[in-house]
Amino acid sequence: MSTSSLIRYSVMVQKELLELVRSFKLLWVPLVFVLLGVMQPVTMFYMPLLLEKAGNMPEGSVIDIPLPTGTEVLAQTLQQFGTLGILVLVLTAMSTVSGERNSGAASLILVKPVSPFAYIGSKWTSMLLLAWGALSAGYLAAWYYTELLIGEVPAKQVIGSLLIYGLWLSFVLTMTLLFSTLLKSPAAAAFSVLGASVTLSLISGIFPKQMGWSPGALSGYAYQFVVGESFASGRFWLAAISGLFLIILALTASAALLRRSPAAE
């Protein structure tokens, strides 16, 4: 890559970041993640009280729910991010390429000396910055509250699971970018990505031996890592490498698709 294309790429990234700020995504997406992260330890902590006040328990019945350990609460938080968090991220990212293609903005940009790679790459960079920022903010907030209310969690397990989970999120978002270039309708792109990611992680959860190498298993490894369970590290590295490989492949494929047809036909 020559210096001039690097400069163009950085200009494009700046434009994407400006757009994140202008549309307030940079503010509200992390806030939603922080909210999700804080809710989990707080509801777990107040669960006995909630049941006592709201449930129709007969007088004098003793409710004895063991308070979950800190690591369990963090694993539950990750599961919250896996449903609502991924939903929010995919829905905000679903029209990144197809929206600009349908409105004609993409072809306006691509007649300038901007390569499809720089275009896709800048979208990808800003998307991942938003996702990693939101995930870290939410997870650290959850960690803080868990330590405050429930119990200690070693920093190593938190940071390790954050990195593993971030890789899974990056994989899902890169697939969103690919489907957004592939399909004209943003809703169809979001639907196929959500369906595919749910199926993939479900299959790798059911057949850990056969499908443990697939990126869909990454979220499972993150839960296991934070709880402190040991897992087959060989299979984990395979999953991480196949995830990275598929991310690069999807980026190349979307750039190639964009080069062939910059505007919606």
């Binding site: 509200w28 806030l31 922080v34 909210l35 804080v38 707080v42």
Partner: peptide, 10 residues
């Protein structure tokens, strides 16, 4: 309180 504040900001 922090939960309520975040909701209010949103």
């Amino acid at each position: 309180a922090p939960v309520l504040v975040i909701q209010l900001i949103l």
